[in-house]
Computed example of a mutant assay.
Amino acid sequence: MKFIALTETNDNEGETWRFWLQLDGNEDQLEHLRAAIAGADEEETYDLDSVDDAVPESEVDVLVKHTLSGYMAYDHKVTGLLEIVDGWTDIDELYKGGVRGLFTAPAPA
């Protein structure tokens, strides 16, 4: 499995967090997320890595295991299916790691 980083630079807390989002199975939804971020004008800054910058799960696991922490941990692994609809623009939902709430757990095998 591969992941791409959603980076949130939070001026309020003075910290930057990376949410490693599952790429596999979420390609189209991540493009909707990318479009919403590109069209937003927010105090908090969000940046979604390119698919070309995808990282293998084993590397994400090491980053998360050894992450530093402040207000919250600096690296987070987010798995499951991203559920946003075309035209979604409420990036306020991303604030302080809210992106995790947009993912559902994968169906049991």
Score class of each variant (00 low, 15 high):
residue 16 T to I: 11
residue 30 L to Y: 13
residue 76 H to P: 12
residue 18 R to L: 10
residue 40 A to F: 03
residue 9 T to Q: 05
residue 58 S to T: 14
residue 84 I to F: 04
residue 61 D to Q: 02
residue 13 E to M: 14
residue 104 T to E: 09
residue 96 K to P: 00
residue 109 A to F: 09
residue 77 K to I: 03
residue 100 R to G: 13
residue 10 N to V: 06
residue 11 D to Q: 10
residue 77 K to T: 09
residue 95 Y to M: 01
residue 37 I to M: 01
residue 64 V to G: 01
residue 77 K to E: 07
residue 9 T to Y: 04
residue 40 A to R: 08
residue 39 G to L: 11
residue 72 M to N: 05
residue 68 L to C: 05
residue 54 A to M: 09
residue 43 E to C: 11
residue 39 G to K: 11
residue 13 E to S: 13
residue 81 L to E: 15
residue 63 L to D: 00
residue 48 L to M: 07
residue 82 L to Q: 05
residue 45 T to F: 11
residue 94 L to R: 04
residue 38 A to R: 08
residue 60 V to Y: 00
residue 3 F to M: 05
residue 33 L to K: 01
residue 58 S to Y: 04
residue 32 H to F: 11
residue 76 H to D: 05
residue 35 A to K: 12
residue 92 D to R: 08
residue 15 E to D: 06
residue 71 Y to N: 06
residue 43 E to N: 14
residue 73 A to I: 01
residue 10 N to S: 10
residue 57 E to C: 09
residue 85 V to D: 14
residue 10 N to Y: 04
residue 85 V to H: 08
residue 34 R to Y: 01
residue 5 A to F: 03
residue 85 V to C: 04
residue 77 K to Y: 01
residue 2 K to C: 08
residue 20 W to F: 10
residue 85 V to T: 05
residue 54 A to F: 08
residue 62 V to C: 02
residue 42 E to L: 15
residue 36 A to S: 04
residue 106 P to F: 03
residue 76 H to L: 09
residue 94 L to V: 02
residue 51 V to C: 01
residue 58 S to G: 07
residue 70 G to H: 05
residue 97 G to I: 12
residue 19 F to R: 07
residue 103 F to K: 06
residue 66 H to I: 00
residue 60 V to N: 02
residue 49 D to H: 03
residue 19 F to D: 08
residue 91 I to N: 00
residue 93 E to M: 06
residue 45 T to C: 06
residue 61 D to E: 08
residue 100 R to D: 12
residue 1 M to L: 11
residue 24 D to R: 11
residue 105 A to R: 12
residue 82 L to H: 10
